[in-house]
Design a protein around this nucleic acid. Sequence first.
DNA 1: CCAAGAAATGGTATCGATAACAAAGCAGAC
DNA 2: GTCTGCTTTGTTATCGATACCATTTCTTGG
Lengths: 336, 336
Amino acid sequence: MRDVDKQSGIYAVAAEAGVSVMSVSRAMRGVDGISAKKRDAILEIARRLNYVPNSNARALSQANADLIGISLPTFANDVFADVLEGTRGTIRRAGFSTVIDTTEYDPEAERRWVERLLSWRPAGLILTGVDHHSDVRSMLRDAKIPTLETWDYDPDPIDVVVGIDHVAAGAQLGTEIRKLGYEKPAFIGVARGHDARADKRLLGLRSVFDVPIARIATKPANSFRMGSEAMHQLLQDHAPDVVFFLNDHMAFGGLIAAQSQGLKVPDDIGVVGFNALDLNTVLPIPLTTMQTPRRVMGVTGARRLLARLNGVEGERATALPVTFVPGATTRLQNQR
Amino acid sequence: MRDVDKQSGIYAVAAEAGVSVMSVSRAMRGVDGISAKKRDAILEIARRLNYVPNSNARALSQANADLIGISLPTFANDVFADVLEGTRGTIRRAGFSTVIDTTEYDPEAERRWVERLLSWRPAGLILTGVDHHSDVRSMLRDAKIPTLETWDYDPDPIDVVVGIDHVAAGAQLGTEIRKLGYEKPAFIGVARGHDARADKRLLGLRSVFDVPIARIATKPANSFRMGSEAMHQLLQDHAPDVVFFLNDHMAFGGLIAAQSQGLKVPDDIGVVGFNALDLNTVLPIPLTTMQTPRRVMGVTGARRLLARLNGVEGERATALPVTFVPGATTRLQNQR
DNA sequence: CCAAGAAATGGTATCGATAACAAAGCAGAC
DNA sequence: GTCTGCTTTGTTATCGATACCATTTCTTGG
């Protein structure tokens, strides 16, 4: 700083108030080491000048910023919004701010976003899932940035993980449905590799049912319409007695599709979703589905991450339980 | 820079490559003024050292960053996700990156978020709606930052606006419904002041129907359940012949609620939504609703903003048309 | 009233990049 | 060989904040 006659920023405020830049800095941050009287005077002048501190300068001079980066697959699926709500509420209350972007289920897009996040030198990161581009794992472990993974589960996470064991959830769901006497299942989801969590649930299902037919929609999607279309297609070639769907959205579309073809649910065919959406609570025919602890996951994960930021070493991997929610789209009990 | 023996950042790369920091800077940015051979060598070394440029330093030294700040009411409503998809796709393709946060319909939260955004010195801002905290307008006009407002319409925006005239949309919807012979309308939404767009649509409706009954849910929400609960409550005290809902989510909940009380739709009562969600295309009883051009709005708005960033002065305020979508939840024609 | 310690205040280097300018290298024309 | 003009390379100040340390001003006990 050679030239002290700055026209902008903290220098302008300091000049106007007739104090040093350090006093302004202290006043703005609300830290100790300044008299109340001077602080109030400075704040008043800052307000009058419409002074907005420059976060770039602040982040540059401090080692770590109060920033948490978040990566989601998509905004077009309210289940992620639920987790996010829990996460961000908790994080924000702790005084951090967040930056979010979506990857549209593309690992390469996730890699780019993580790189961009790292360029901001954030305090921590939150990723969705545990399957990442190989660079992501190495970058994050190298950078030693506290990282939370959510939704999925892995006994050896990048840093910490709070989520669901989707293989186990699939097996659990399959077991419950099998108990009801169903024998010819089918699965409707997206093509393998487009949604790692769905692939794992299918894997779990297959550990229970011997030869499930897998009928796969081609594009990644979580829409009512996709469920409906896929169901129509499926019924052309197959006669399953129960259909598992990737999620409740698609299951609901599939339910309507089955009914429109004259099939009785659950007598002729069972329909099973995943996630227990809000929608379900008002439907005259509530879906059989799995309740996922989304808000709890968000809050627990956020707390775990905050603890890590404070240097507390805790449990690294947590799998939360999911609950089977029997609805009116499957039989009540084994009727054989 | 007194001490040139830096251990980190661009200096580490420069030292390793035996060149100056400027050569590294040029290589990383891919600008002219460096020989291809040297550039490739530098990039190789940067990759080997896991070098990630520091965006804070870059943003500090450059006047304007390649950052666009976005503010949304909430993630828990797919209509915003639709607009966002259009906006961000366009903006990202132009080489900008985005930062997003939600306000949960709270103007004070929006003010804080805008302040935070400004502290990053972004190239531009995108806000939802045209009703902001008074500070927001003054801050943005002061800072002379190109700002796009979406969803709503105002002939005198902060900078540019691309959206829908919700008063006109409400009037249009009311007119269409009135043509069908309905006479005793009711409205179900959130309490006044919680959703400016909904308030405006109600205003428009009221310009068509003389004395609409307004039945208002207390909390801001866009859930199926809220629609269902509000409908049950409404029917306890009133006997409307048509009910307008804040959006399709609530309308669908209300539709189910009406049916569960033994009312025939549309014979006994009409149900009208707003937004034309994807859900609608699979329902056996599609909702009567209004189609909003969400993706187009996002793309058009983004283009307008990009033009502004390039200094092009264009139209400042654009209202996009909405389309009436007659469904099976209202009568087909005036039956009197 | 003074010494000693606490609180308030200020000067300057620093964070990691880029801009602006200066210098060096290099090709072709004469 | 030397001059001219273009490309390549390097040096240094700068962006706006904070950390560290030095200095000044206030308290308070003896």
